[in-house]
Design a protein around this nucleic acid. Structure first.
Lengths: 124, 124
DNA sequence: AACATATTTAACCATATGGTTAAATATGTT
DNA sequence: AACATATTTAACCATATGGTTAAATATGTT
């Protein structure tokens, strides 16, 4: 009987694998909105927080989650800590998706040929 | 001051938006392993559970999460409830990623031209 | 009907997550 | 030095998540 080793972290405070961190980070709408803002360009925590009806510490926590996933980085500019979107984790998601791309493209193809067959019948 | 409405669910038991459900479902390595197995074809809960060192009810719960995200569907075949991978949510992830694809492709391009410039210098 | 097989549900538990307010820290300005 | 601005940390809280074991349910076989 084969057992998959699903997570190789050996210590008890299990550090989730990177892909899990990335997907967890993306699983929150506030964080996705923050990323969408950052796609427009680097900006401060205050400006990132402004649109949301939550406290600044809550936003800081979201940024920590995004940082743990490698999705953003922060620098220093006077008192401000501007945040920047980082591309690499998104590429990892793309790589993950690629495993399945064939699968769902195939299914689309099946749909295509089904629609095509309907079409052919119509024109008979 | 603009406030984003990040989640439009009005009742207190907030039903997270679909994209959040999908990313949450993908954020667990056991569930990603289950999806990987299902990419090979439909199979029973027992067979899905076999490789993991956890109880069957734990696997059932993971399947529930995958189902809530629309990533799998279950049918009935005698006592068995075979699971099948569903493509649509993965397409939604792809759509989400597409928003950023330009961003990270651009960054790769920048790396490319940097490497190219190094190359040119080398050949001077 | 009784038993077997496949799966789910219920009740429970420990830890993670996403929020809060109050206080602390880092940097810049007067 | 004192104050202002930007952000983070600490302590706390309610709910979600991912696991457990025991019992229930659905279907098939004898």
């Amino acid at each position: 009987m084969v057992k998959y080793v699903v997570n190789n972290a050996s210590n008890l405070t299990m550090t989730a694998d990177q892909l899990s961190n990335i997907f967890s980070a993306l699983a929150d709408p506030t964080r996705r909105a923050i990323l969408a803002r950052l796609a427009l360009g680097e900006t401060s925590v205050n400006e990132l927080a402004a649109p949301f009806e939550m406290s600044l510490p809550a936003v800081t926590k979201h940024l920590k989650v995004l940082q743990r996933a490698g999705l953003i980085s922060q620098s220093r500019q006077a008192q401000s800590r501007p945040c920047k979107l980082e591309a690499k984790p998104l590429q990892e998601v793309a790589t993950f998706l690629a495993q399945y791309q064939q699968f769902w493209e195939q299914r689309l193809d099946q749909l295509d040929s089904y629609l095509l067959s309907l079409n052919l019948k119509e024109n008979e």
